[in-house]
């Protein structure tokens, strides 16, 4: 009798955490996993699959299997140029964003909380507006010819004599991308800078470092994690962007995103479009992986 009571009390007690509690937390993820499985992983796998198939004259995708689409991107001069342009423009955008972000991030960290909040608000305010709207906004500003806002301003101030041609160049795409992705650089940088003990900068000054040496030897190296994070995000987003180059780049500053769109919707070459998309994903993954490798194990703390 006593033993019976005993077991009836202890059994559910012992089991409850093992099954009920631990697994119930995992169950919560099922709806999301199901959604992702059907709407993301399955299409991604199909994409991968179709990128190694061929399209016959009837437009049906199927065997034989080939890697020809992957090599085509780099072997055909026009496509290779788009590929390298995309990488170059992404790197340039990330670098300019870094240069523009450091001063703002430093001010954010050094200011009083109220000022910091206001600056943060100003920095992230553009995110409220759709990328398409901002793209067309920049189009108005950068319009070639004397009627463009920027050209009108520069000419009325007497800075230039003839209107500049910025729209539908790489410069226009970089300007637009900077505007869209700048907050992604400022925020991680400010977060990294905020973690630096202000005494370190005081200590460096007391040891004889003028402000620029304090920045180069202390602030910059200690903020590298934020820089790497910001650079990776801005690079990834710029490399994968479609709207900004479509609106501001025109025909002369095509990026991989636009090339994919052309292959899918205009040329109907789905295998090739899939291959480009996967190459783009691979490049972004590689950059992310490299920056993770840099960040982990405090490799950045070790002097070169």
């Amino acid at each position: 009798m006593a033993a019976e009571i005993d077991s009836s009390i202890t059994q559910p007690r012992g089991r409850a955490p093992a099954f009920g509690l631990r697994l119930s937390a995992s169950y919560l993820m099922i709806p999301m996993l199901a959604f992702l499985a059907y709407f993301f992983f399955y299409p991604a796998l199909r994409l991968l699959f179709s990128s190694i198939q061929t399209q016959n004259s009837q437009g049906i995708v199927g065997p034989p299997y080939t890697l020809e689409h992957y090599t085509r991107l780099l072997n055909v001069d026009l496509y290779a140029r788009v590929f390298w342009n995309t990488l170059r423009m992404s790197v340039i955008t990330s670098l300019i964003a870094t240069i523009l972000a450091y001063p703002v991030a430093i001010v954010m960290v050094k200011s009083r909380p109220m000022v910091t909040r206001i600056i943060t608000l100003i920095v992230i305010a553009p995110l409220i507006v759709s990328v398409v709207v901002r793209g067309y906004g920049w189009q108005l500003i950068l319009t070639n010819g004397p009627k463009g806002l920027l050209n009108w301003l520069l000419m009325s101030l007497g800075i230039v004599d003839a209107p500049l041609s910025i729209l539908y160049t790489e410069a226009a795409v970089i300007i637009g991308s900077l505007h869209v992705f700048y907050p992604m650089m400022v925020l991680p940088l400010a977060s990294a800078l905020g973690k630096i003990d202000p005494n370190l900068e005081d200590a460096a000054r007391m040891l004889g470092a003028p402000w620029w040496k304090v920045f180069l030897r202390v602030t910059l190296p200690l903020s590298l994690p934020g820089f790497v994070a910001g650079f990776t995000i801005v690079f990834s987003l710029t490399a994968g962007s479609f709207v900004i180059p479509a609106i501001l780049g025109g025909a002369s500053a095509i990026m991989l995103g636009n090339l994919i769109e052309q292959q899918i919707f205009v040329v109907y070459d789905w295998p090739f479009g899939a291959a480009i998309a996967l190459i783009l994903v691979a490049v972004v993954f590689a950059v992310n992986g490299f920056s993770m490798w840099l960040l982990e194990g405090r490799r950045l703390r070790r002097p070169a």
């Binding site: 370190l200 007391m206 470092a209 950045l300 703390r301 002097p303």
Partner: peptide
């Protein structure tokens, strides 16, 4: 200015440069 005063200072939290070795910390000045 601070960096021309030639004053040594010890901070409560030591304020050592975490990205530099002991030798490099001392060599900084």
């Amino acid at each position: 200015p601070v960096h021309r005063r030639n004053i040594g200072m010890l901070f409560q939290n030591y304020a050592l440069f975490p990205h530099l070795t002991v030798e490099e910390n001392i060599a900084f000045g």
